[in-house]
Nucleic acid binder design. Structure first.
Lengths: 237, 237
DNA sequence: TCAATAAACCTGTCATACAGGTTTAAGCTA
DNA sequence: TAGCTTAAACCTGTATGACAGGTTTATTGA
């Protein structure tokens, strides 16, 4: 099926094996859910040890290109933001990225997703988005609930954009957002300021429901201006 | 230093070990270049086999959170688009993402990077961007050269935005762009159409150099409209 | 003091083994 | 013969031990 991997010192056997596997997916036009060869069969075929194949599989699983589970064969995976989440978190932890930069990216992406959502959303999507906004309002006293519905709100909007790349990117930022969110929340005074922040979410949901991309986009942009400012006031560079 | 990993069947030893290592980076505030414990010492410390530690290291290396090299200890890595490139490519190959969707994301991101570049670029950056545009013009007969300078042009603009997240995202799309670029190029008639496409790049470079974010952004947006249309005409969904 | 050399350490790969989980095949029953 | 049960075959997760190089550290000799 596939040729032997050359015993090349350069990239390393594992790296080459990763290449062989991705090539295999390409060549056989595998899609999500399709099964890959077993570790042992690959090892025999490529004349390498199972150790190497395993490390290649692990690498691909780390990038979420394949799914592993015990006893069963590896499967081609659906796209998912898990790996990208970790990368972003790592960038923040090692101080290569700061929170303001993330908010700039989020604003850029999400003013687009909200525009597309207003144009393309299904009725069910519009309703789900609105529901999250209303839940935020209903539980304004429970920060954790507000946060979860806030995150779900933004992710649902990305989904309604019908572009999976936006979904992945928005999802990828949720990990770090979970950490900075409480800071922004605390920096807003209970009462007026918090209510206004939630009102903006409801306004966005209404604009999406009304199919008004311009208004949705303006509100989203204002929301991010506001959030970035709140974090800045709280001392988050 | 760290506690034993519980023999939990749930996430698996490797997954847990990945957690331990990222926690270690966090706890010790390690930055890019800092060294991690050796495989054997980690294995002994966590009472697990070196096999497990190795697979955890490989996973982190696949996500580009750490760098491995033979003989030397693993180091914390700088952010880099390698893993995200593979993820995107995988999404395209498995038909979970199409080229038009990628162009929408690129347009969204790059109308922002070009705006920031016009505001923040150093003189050296403005010059480098312009140079790539001029090289495209100078080698209009050699498609591969035009493409490489085109890609470098866009990446340099992202760098000039001074936001590493944009750089990673733009870089991540270059892999797939390399595959669709020739299609778009061929769909443009030699002479007028190709010259006009390159002229747009020069116009963008000029706008960045002139510090005119509005014009830069408009030109970039027009460029992506044009490119997406060219690919559509060539039959690329 | 400094440079050459040896020792200690480290990663990459291999072979083997075994405990479970999963799929497949065989066999048995009705 | 159809359907269910059970055993065999297969597969992944983890452990152990081994050895070839590459790298760092310590030693030694001038």
């Amino acid at each position: 099926m596939m040729q032997d991997a050359k015993p090349d010192a350069g990239p390393g056997l594992v790296q080459e094996t990763i290449g062989v596997i991705t090539q295999h997916i390409r060549a056989h036009e595998l899609g999500p859910g399709d099964k890959l060869p077993s570790e042992s069969s690959l090892a025999k075929e490529l004349n390498i040890s199972r150790t190497v194949v395993r490390e290649a599989f692990r690498s691909l699983a780390a990038m979420r290109l394949i799914d592993l589970s015990v006893g069963k064969r590896a499967k081609v995976a659906s796209i998912d933001h898990g790996a990208m989440s970790l990368m972003i978190e790592h960038g923040v932890i090692t101080e290569q990225i700061n929170v303001q930069q993330i908010y700039d990216v989020r604003r850029t992406i999400e003013t687009r997703t909200v525009t597309l959502a207003a144009l393309r959303r299904s009725d069910a999507e519009a309703e789900s988005i609105m529901r999250h906004a209303l839940e935020m309002q209903a539980h304004v006293d429970q920060a954790d609930l507000v946060m979860e519905h806030d995150l779900a709100f933004h992710l649902d909007i990305a989904r309604a954009s019908r572009n999976p790349v936006f979904v992945v990117i928005v999802g990828a930022f949720q990990g770090v957002s979970r950490q900075s969110w409480p800071i922004g929340w605390k920096s807003r005074a209970p009462g007026e300021e918090r209510a206004s922040m939630i009102a903006t979410h409801i306004g966005i949901a209404e604009a999406i429901n009304a199919g008004d991309p311009q208004r949705a986009s303006n509100l989203m942009s204002a929301h991010f201006d506001d959030s970035a400012k709140a974090l800045l006031l709280a001392g988050l560079t």
